[in-house]
Each structure stands twice: as C-alpha cells, then as structure tokens.
Computed example of a mutant assay.
Amino acid sequence: MLDQATTVRMGEELDLDKLATFLHDQNPAFNGTPDIAQFAGGASNLTYLLHYPKIDVILRRPPFGHRAKSAHDMLREAAIMRALKPVYPYVPHVITTCQDEHIMGCDFYVMERLHGIIPRKNLPKELVLSPNETRQLCLNVIDKLIELHQIDYQAAGLASLAKGAGYVARQMQGWSDRYRQAKTEDVGDFEDVIQWLQAHMPASDTATCLIHNDFRFDNVVLNPSKPCEVIGVLDWEMATLGDPLMDLGNTLAYWVQADDDAVFQSVRRQPTHLPGMLTRQEVIAYYAQKTGYAVDHFDFYAIFGLFRLAVIVQQIYYRFFHQQTSNPAFAEFGKLSLYLEQRCSRLIKETSR
C-alpha cells in the first residue's frame, strides 16, 4: 500500500558509481552502491529511490535535456526545505546537496524518505475509507495548506524570497507571456480569458505569506497506520512568498469533483471525486472560515488557477508538438489546452449572470 518506485525510465538513468562515491564521501553510512528505482511523476523534476541495506533515501534532480536557467533550481528548493523544517515538520529532512556537475551534470539533493501513502488518482485498493473518513482526510490536507500560509516566514529566515508588493500582477504578466510563447497553431489564444483576468485583477494582494504553488493530494504523504493523517508535504520547487488566495486557486484547478464533466474527470489525478470529499465551493468556504480572508470575489483566483494550469499543459505540449519530446502521454495535451480555455470561458460567462 506504500507509494512504490519502479524501474528507472529509459534515458533517465544515473551514473551510480559517481553517485555512490559522492554520497559515501558525505557520510560513511552510505556504503556501497545503492539499488535505484524511480517514482512516477509528471514532466518536471525527477525523483529517485536509493536503497541501501540499512536506509532508503530520495534523490531529486532536474529533467534531462535543455531547460531554462531559472527553472528546476534544486539548491533553492533544498534551501527552502531546510529553512521550513523547524517550523513546518511535514517537510522531509534534506541530507545533502550537490552542485558539482561532474557527478550528474546538474545540481541535485538527497533527502530522507517518508514511508507512507501518496494519494494519487485513486487511493490504493487496500485503503477503503468511509465518507466521514474521506471528509476528515480532505480537511486534514487543507489544514496543512492553511498552516503553511500562517507561518512566520521572517522568523523562518525566508524573507529573502520576497519580491515586493504586486505578486498577483507579476503572476498575470508572467503566465500570460509564457502562454503566448508556448502557443502552437492548433490551440486557442486565450486572449479573451487574459483580458477578463486583467480587468478583474484585485487592486492589491490579499496578504503576503509563504505559498507552496503546487499543493495537491499527490504532493502529500499519509501515515500508513492512520491514513487520514498527513505526515509529509513534498515538491517545494515553486514555493515562494505570495498571495494565499492565488495558492488556493492553483490548488483548486486540479480539484476534479464528482459532478464535473467527463473531460475534466478524464484528467483527474487525485481522489477528490470520492464521497465525503469537499466540493471546490466547500473548500473555499472552509478556508475562509479558518483564515478570515475574504473570498467574495474568488472567481478571479479560480479562473486564474485554470489558466495557469493551461499554460503548464501548453508548455509541455509545445515540446511534443515541436518534437522535442516523444512521450506519447503528451500527445493529447493540445486538446486539454483547448478544453481548459473553454472551461475558463464558461466560468467567466457564469460570473456575469
């Protein structure tokens, strides 16, 4: 029932001899050459399991091939995790980092392995929760996002992440530019959606707090003996200081509920459809009640979250369209981009009624 790693994907192998030597130099407890496996993941950073006779550890590295210099910053991610660990115990302990490109051709870091259940598209068959238990799991996951937003980031030594006021405006500009750069001839231009977002953008940020920017069920780890309990939060690549409602909107872009249409159901990647799970509106209401933030105009954040997801999808599809990757899983991402534009447009029409 624990989250399992499998065979390393072709083209994503590591030089185990160099890696083993490096890790042994860091700590003699890493003795010999580890067995290696790889966790299933998306199109971003790669995650490997290194198995030694007495310990398992996790290695995180950027994807292979060309990447933007500012993207996939392993050292930044590790530094954020180290700063957060004392005040947010769900962060895995970072064991070591490496910026010697002779080892792997890139920066990487190694962290502890959290043994637990990662709730992906469906819960493991062995894990059967009642609707009440499912609701409690859902609330516990949302509570971890709320707890993150309430951290004193200055006391945690993370004030340097700040870029000043205007987070929402910077996000609007940045993601709009990224979509235009990644647009292919067979998808929509999203210009109507972008214009609506610009016209309805809040005048100021809700607050400034530490945000995860990719907070989903498949980035949390559950206690295998108490599966409603969250023991870990993973994937801190995009964490920064920003508007908490933007973070919530990004989270809800992935929140496929039981009454959503068949297309949205087909791309579901977390078990938010189960009886007992909160709906998106219930999540918003619960978050507002726990934090005190006003959510009267949450439509902007919800639609922006879907637009941002569409940009991520389109950036991946751009690589497939231009034959920079041959992964067949990306072949339908253009259709998904079109669907997300239609979904945004439908929500915009509903807000004007």
Rank of each mutant, 00 (worst) to 15 (best):
94 V>K: 09
176 S>A: 15
199 A>E: 13
67 R>L: 08
201 M>D: 00
262 A>S: 09
117 I>K: 07
161 L>T: 08
167 Y>P: 11
24 H>L: 02
136 Q>C: 08
117 I>R: 08
227 P>M: 06
15 D>Q: 07
122 N>G: 00
157 G>M: 02
10 M>F: 04
267 V>S: 03
261 D>I: 02
64 F>C: 14
75 L>C: 01
346 R>L: 13
44 S>R: 00
332 E>R: 11
96 T>I: 00
160 S>V: 05
334 G>E: 02
206 T>W: 03
19 L>F: 04
144 K>T: 14
300 F>C: 09
273 H>R: 10
37 A>L: 09
42 G>D: 02
271 P>Q: 04
2 L>R: 01
50 L>N: 06
60 R>E: 03
38 Q>L: 08
289 Q>A: 15
205 D>G: 12
246 M>L: 14
219 N>G: 08
143 D>A: 14
158 L>Y: 04
127 L>R: 08
334 G>V: 04
56 D>C: 02
7 T>L: 12
228 C>R: 14
98 C>V: 01
139 L>N: 05
297 H>A: 13
246 M>A: 14
180 R>D: 13
155 A>Q: 14
294 A>R: 10
54 K>T: 14
133 E>I: 04
5 A>S: 12
16 L>R: 09
263 V>F: 14
196 W>F: 06
114 L>N: 06
52 Y>T: 01
80 I>H: 02
34 P>W: 01
232 G>M: 04
342 Q>C: 12
76 R>Q: 10
317 Y>L: 05
221 V>F: 10
258 A>H: 12
165 A>W: 00
214 D>I: 04
